[in-house]
Amino acid sequence: MELRLDGVSHAYGGTQVLRDITLTVPEGKIVCIVGPSGCGKSTLLRMMGGLERPDEGTITQLGEPPEGCLNPLTYVFQDFALLPWRSVEGNISLALEDHDLSKARRAAIIEDVLARTSLSDFARALPRQLSGGMKQRVAIARALAVNPAVMLLDEPLSALDAQTRVLLMDDLVSLWTRAPFTAVYVTHNLAEAVRLGHRIVVLSRRPGAIREVVEIDSDLGARGEGDAKLEQVQTHLWHLMRDEARAADAELADA
């Protein structure tokens, strides 16, 4: 399933946040969205998932969600959004309970996603007993459980330390190489963007408009440390972002 945004604009009470965003999320690819703080990345993602309505423009799903998909547009949140009163398996089960599944089927799905995220030993643990990285793996497992057509990730690794971030990035890459999924990945971190993105969308400062779209063709699994091409892209992105951040700063100083 593809996702297409056409001329999406939005304002929060007089403040224009997004301006004329036109964008396609192709099937089986990861689209990264980067941009300075407050440029409307999270807002855009909320709109893609139907949690918010844009003032102008349309957001369209193209094609059918995959077989056995329970929730076509599925989020992974920055703050994990796990229910603290439910165990790991209970949190995953939450996403399945409203669907007409047999008990055995549900248990099988939970077991499968726990295995895929190497959490099988923690099925009965409560969120407070888990480290940040493990909490986010639970959230990813929960998203995988509903077999989404498009995964919407809003800075999923921002709340984690650098080492955990690298490990989880590897996890995401291996999840994708084993079973390619479609995803929109919002991040501040350009290293994440060039490691995970097939297409990187750079937004300008508020009101967020598309500044540039960078395509990276190389295979996700083949991208490693010290890849010259990736470094080059990252530097290019960094220059774009730095200019935007500077300009945003200057605007604030003028105001």
Binding site: L51, N71, Y75, D79, A81, L94, A95, R142
Partner: peptide, 10 residues
């Protein structure tokens, strides 16, 4: 945030 999460899972 938890309520939004619930909505986002339908």
């Amino acid at each position: 945030g938890l309520i939004r999460m619930g909505q986002s899972f339908g």
